[in-house]
Nucleic acid binder design. Structure first.
Length: 374
RNA sequence: GUCGGCGUAGCUCAGUUGGUUAGAGCACCAGAUUGUGGUUCUGGGGGUCGGGGGUUCAAGUCCCCUCGCCGACC
């Protein structure tokens, strides 16, 4: 049985030397070239950026969050506003996360087979999320891609607990499929299994059997580090269907992303470019720089000379240093523009390299250059 | 001129009846941040305790002189 999906994924190229792939992902809101990085706009906004500025970075898909939007402003209002696309005025593709990660990231949650109770809320009412409720919210929000409600365990996690969470995730994904009845949204399944090869493979098999238009690898970016991340991806990605997009959730740093592309991942999201931007940490081909450092006080060069973003075209490091020292909002804006643009540039280059069959060379050169900055 | 109050980190201040190596907040410097609460966390550099003298085993603390600022009164 094949689920009909509003998503079309076309594989364009496989790198001859590794599992890296280039493809095209079409949603009702346009085309996205893969591998792709999706900037995160949890509350229906990429912090510090207008949708126009986000588009100018080259991003064609962004992420928002079920849990946060259900609490405020409530999915009903969003639905009345024309869904997330109308509410936040982002015309391109949107993916919503299910709220599953908040089980891991928010303190004071109570979880059982039925669902999760969040007791942490400081403002707004305490919330309960179940697979059904998560689907209900995500259908109202109206994103093009929505995620199954899963249980994400912390790291480290012993195998029995990881296994219980994995089977609960499988049970919940069945309930998500039953509850999801909108044909203009694609529901992705999420592979869990912590850092255990046996569980990852089992979970991948079970997800594939349920036939989704795309598959995510979840339960990473919880503090496991690059070595384990590579292993987990290596145990999972090769078993996922070739003709469906593969999404590594919550990752990550440039090196995390490049290593995972090599292992066959197509989609990424992470708060790092935007969060780091707000604390003055900017990405360059020579590694990260921290603009608040005194050494940039009189630095009249752009953040990254080879970057064509608005920030790098127009402003010096010294000016950005000054903006951060003065707590000017513009510092956050310009830094966010650059970091998001930098990630998009990195993904374009990776894609080009795959299409030309030289991905490994590209990755090695990129990482070598990054190391020079240290 | 007289009387009173105050001088401790860049800033605002705490410092017990005299008792180890004088503290805090902010600022500054440097790290951390992975399906986001613009946060938060973790380190670090900084002091002739206005200056000088005295009492004492021991003084930021008590005494004397002196300098500066503030207030009140002549």
């Amino acid at each position: 049985m094949t689920t009909e999906s509003p998503l079309r994924f076309e594989l364009q190229a496989n790198d001859p030397a590794c599992a890296a792939r280039a493809g095209r992902l079409n949603s009702p809101h346009g085309e996205t070239l893969t591998p792709v990085f999706m900037p995160v706009g949890t509350h229906g906004a990429l912090k510090a950026l207008t949708p126009r500025q986000v588009e100018e970075t080259g991003a064609t898909i962004v992420l928002a969050n079920t849990y946060h939007l259900a609490i405020r402003p409530g999915e009903g209002l969003v639905e009345k506003s024309g869904g997330l696309h109308g509410f936040m005025r982002w015309p391109k593709t949107i993916l919503t996360d299910s709220g599953g990660f908040q089980v891991f990231s928010l303190p004071g949650t109570k979880i059982d087979d039925h669902g999760v109770q969040f007791r942490y809320e400081k403002d707004g009412e305490p919330v309960e999320l179940t697979p059904e409720r998560s689907m209900q919210i995500q259908m109202a929000l109206g994103a093009d891609i929505i995620m199954a409600f899963d249980e994400c365990v912390p790291f480290p996690c012993d195998e029995p607990r990881a296994e219980r969470a994995m089977y609960r995730t499988l049970d919940w994904v069945d309930r998500c499929q039953v509850a999801h009845d909108r044909k203009d949204q694609a529901l992705f399944g999420i592979v869990q299994g912590s850092t255990y090869e046996r569980l990852r493979k089992k979970c991948a098999q079970e997800m594939i059997r349920r036939d989704f238009p795309g598959y995510a690898v979840g339960g990473v970016s919880v503090g496991e580090g690059l070595d384990l991340l590579k292993k987990v991806v290596g145990w999972t990605a090769p078993f996922l269907p070739e003709d469906k997009p593969r999404y590594l959730m919550g990752v990550g740093l440039p090196e995390d992303i490049l290593e995972s592309i090599e292992r066959g991942i197509d989609m990424f999201d992470c708060v790092i470019p935007t969060r780091y931007a707000r604390s003055a940490t900017l990405f360059t081909f020579r590694g990260r720089i921290r603009l608040t450092n005194r050494r940039y006080r009189r630095d009249l060069f752009p953040v990254e000379p080879n970057c064509e973003c608005y920030t790098c075209r127009e402003f010096t490091r010294a000016y950005l240093h000054h903006l951060f020292q003065s707590d000017e909002i513009l510092g956050h804006i310009l830094a966010s523009i650059h970091n998001v643009a930098f990630y998009q540039m990195m993904m374009r280059q990776a894609r080009e390299a795959i299409l030309e069959g030289r991905y490994m060379e590209y990755k090695e050169a990129f990482l070598k250059e990054q190391a020079k900055g240290r």
